[in-house]
Design a protein around this nucleic acid. Structure first.
Lengths: 217, 217
DNA sequence: AGGTGTGAACACTTTCACAGCA
DNA sequence: TGCTGTGAAAGTGTTCACACCT
């Protein structure tokens, strides 16, 4: 029960959860791995393998209880609680993230926004007032924050992370296009939109040159 | 030369390219796979394997010519051209993406922004005027666009994609939290920020329960 | 010596196929 | 019968180790 769990499995669990929540809203009942797989764009065997890494949640012949499975996955992912998050960087991306409703809906609450720019410090964003990035450590302590969203320019990113980690942060969602160095026990997930467009560019380019991938006609 | 190339390889190529461009700016010369690997956070063997999928770009005993390797990777990724892109959705995320400088820097140019909301249509964003989403097909034809950035609410996403694909779009960067259905030959890459936070939540939660991962002390 | 290119070994992930319970 | 849970097989991706070129 404490073996290595792959990143893809976690992403799929997150996806299953989204589907289960839709089902919860429209009544509940039970789902089969086949149904979940179809909705998530994977296979029934994959769904069962993913879940079986954490326990036996279904009933043979019946499937999974929608509400129960939802609870289980929330438990696995650590979503049966609320996560206070600090956002560093009040630029365009930071602002979009701050307004992003789905974060709060899932229990991630941005409790403080910091920026280095003196012209931004003090500005109100809804219920929050932008604070000086110099006070990062104090804010992390004050809010007991373990997660940080980093939306600052690349050159500033590493310094902020170093300070945040020293102040107790253990997880970072990084939007800056740099590979951050962190000690063991600190987790970084990167969102790099340029990289995604480049992957798309590759897909379109290779197809043009005529790869196999198949259309058939 | 036309074998299957994994997604991870493409992402790493994109990363190598970023490093090479930094090196280009600071003089050029040559790099070894070891050096590249270190900067990209991977292994020398991995770098060589990745590159060898596309050809032999290095000189034994010497390494890779920085400028040349950059050109090669740009060629592989299809970045030796400019890509016109249509952005659908002029909300918070759309706006942040529109202002995102790194897109243009890499040859992705947002040539048109569309929105369904009549109050947004006609609004100027710098050199561009927001157009009505109803004209999607016309815009795609007019601008000869093959790539779409989707930043609309989840319920609207599938319809936009269907229409865009029918009008000739072959690649979509999707920010809506839904699995899009597309025909063969159309590529979709998803950016799901909630999913990333949930993965972080899992990381932090599992560590708390005491997994192996190792800190040692 | 120094560093690439690559087959072979290894590790990890996904799929298969079926035993077993409701 | 229907659908889960899971070992075993197949498939993918990564690392090793070394021949070979400069």
């Amino acid at each position: 029960m404490s073996t290595k769990v792959s990143d893809s499995t976690i992403r799929r669990l997150s996806h299953y959860l989204r589907i289960l929540e839709t089902l919860e809203r429209s009544g509940g009942g039970t789902v089969s791995s086949t149904h979940l797989a179809q909705a998530a764009g994977t296979t029934a065997a994959q769904v069962r393998k993913d879940l079986s890494l954490f326990g036996s949640f279904g009933k043979r012949g019946l499937g999974y209880q929608v509400a129960d499975l939802g609870d289980r996955i929330r438990g696995i992912l650590g979503l049966d609680r609320s996560w206070p998050v600090v956002l560093v960087g009040a630029g365009r991306i930071g602002s979009a993230l701050f307004e992003y409703r789905d974060f709060r809906r899932r229990g991630f609450e941005i409790v403080s926004v910091l920026d280095r720019d003196a012209r931004k410090v003090g500005v109100r964003w809804g219920p929050i007032e932008i604070e000086d990035a110099a006070t990062l450590e104090a804010v992390i302590a004050r809010e007991s924050v373990e997660m940080l969203i980093l939306a600052v320019p690349a050159p500033a990113a590493q310094e902020i992370v170093d300070r945040a980690v020293a102040a107790g942060v253990r997880g970072v969602l990084n939007f800056a296009p740099v590979r951050l160095r962190t000690p063991d026990g600190v987790f970084v997930h990167n969102v790099n939109m340029v990289m995604e467009l480049e992957a798309l560019s590759f897909d379109l380019t290779s197809r043009e040159h005529g790869l196999e991938v198949g259309r058939g006609d």
